[in-house]
Design a protein around this nucleic acid. Sequence first.
DNA 1: AAACTGACTAATA
DNA 2: CTATTAGCCAGTT
Length: 110
Amino acid sequence: MSSVREGTYALIYGVVRRIPPGRVATYGQVARLAGLPGRARQVGYALHALREGDCVPWQRVINARGEVSARAEPGMVELQRQCLEAEGVVFDGRSRIDLDRYGWRPRSPR
DNA sequence: AAACTGACTAATA
DNA sequence: CTATTAGCCAGTT
């Protein structure tokens, strides 16, 4: 069926799940790919609502500046960074990721 | 049902 | 580079 009126969050999770390991996507990019252009904020809120066990690689979503966005819970930023580094993503001296190099490019040869 | 709450971004100064 | 402004929507209380 067309028009499966899933919650906005479900659409977002669907996109995030497609981000391959070792790659990152920005909130705005995820929003656009989910068919929700301009709703980058909602992506962040959706990820915040995630629970363990949802199998969504939330760690691969970062902000447009190429950095891990600040979270409410302390320690989570470092956790996210560690998870990404474990996938091979490299942070520069200012804790930023080179989107030009690690940004996910859908429909593009790996 | 109204108010509150948030893991953002792009443009401008 | 930082600060400010405006646009954004849905799940919770």
